[in-house]
Design a protein around this nucleic acid. Structure first.
Length: 283
DNA sequence: TTGTGTTTTATTGCCTCC
DNA sequence: GGAGGCAATAAAACACAA
């Protein structure tokens, strides 16, 4: 425990040494005891003029003059009754508040000066600043919390709006997809769309084929597996790829039966036309 | 007047800095 | 090791409704 911690509770005034340590003796008290009027003669110059305040309230000095700097009778009282906690006067608090606004930390010199100006013990001034800093911190935390709360609310509103927009766009995609499917069913294209698909075959070399090739080959009535260069696995892969609506868009004329067998085509390949991930995520 | 909640003053213990 | 800051807390003073 540091040497400063010699203050004891108010209720144990029966011991003189304790009393002297706890309430009467401060390192700076000699300065202070030179007179509480110091703030009238020389104090108050440092930051604020406290003279008018003092004139307006003659009871200002009671804290020290009458109760802490009293005569022997007053001192005797300390041995027989517990010291009461005194609130600072309005003027004292105002003065301290002004000082706090200027600088919320208290250097030793300023503490002494303030104590002299206000007729308080330096220790009281220090305690007041300490408590005042604590209150300021609490207020600041409340402000910060409110600011964060407002920020969060704003972000959440933005997020909710984006969700709504996303749902709306999803709906639009579904409607357009349905529309397209219906249109394709009712009005099959007269001219094959010139879709070029570029893909790699099993050997890794690029294969280029046009849709009309695929359609014509897929429409062939007979399929001779012997003449086909499509393996069973490749055929399965291709069949699977044709099951997807995307495939029906690329191969609009294919009927269900048509892809029961793999088409014999010069454009034989073993890849999936569509990207399953894309479609699954799109829906 | 009294019970209760809030504010203010003060203490204690711990920590950091020099 | 002393000085000072801070968090937690006690307790007095105060405000106010019932």
């Amino acid at each position: 425990m540091a040497g400063r911690r010699v203050y004891s509770s108010n209720s144990s005034n029966s011991d003189l040494s304790v009393l002297l340590q706890s309430q009467r003796v401060e390192p700076f008290d000699p300065l202070f005891l030179q007179g509480s009027n110091s703030f009238l003669s020389s104090g108050a110059r440092s930051m604020l003029s406290f003279e008018d305040v003092h004139r307006a309230n003659r009871s200002f000095f009671r804290t020290f003059d009458q109760e802490e700097n009293g005569d022997d009778d007053d001192l005797d009282e300390y041995f027989h009754q517990p010291e009461k906690k005194r609130r600072l006067t309005v003027e004292q608090v105002q003065f301290l508040e002004k000082s706090f606004e200027v600088e919320n930390k208290l250097e030793p010199d300023r503490k002494i000066q303030l104590a002299k100006d206000l007729g308080l013990r330096p220790r009281q001034v220090a305690i007041w600043f300490q408590n005042r800093r604590a209150r300021w911190k609490t207020k600041q935390l409340e402000k910060d919390y409110d600011a964060l709360q407002a920020n969060f609310n704003s972000l959440k509103a933005d997020y909710d709006n984006l969700l709504k927009e996303k749902d709306k766009l999803k709906q639009e995609v579904l409607q357009l997809t349905d529309k397209l499917a219906m249109k394709e069913r009712d009005e099959p294209p007269q001219q094959p769309v010139d879709v070029v698909v570029v893909a790699a075959d099993q050997t890794g070399s690029e294969v280029v084929c046009k849709q009309e090739d695929m359609i014509s080959s897929s429409k062939s009535d007979t399929f001779d597996p012997d003449q086909s260069d499509v393996t069973q696995e490749e055929g399965d892969n291709l069949s699977n790829s044709l099951l997807h609506p995307a495939a029906s868009y690329i191969f609009p004329k294919l009927e269900d039966d048509d892809y029961s067998d793999p088409p014999a085509s010069s454009c034989s390949f073993g890849f999936h036309v569509e990207d399953h991930d894309f479609w699954s995520s799109a829906y």
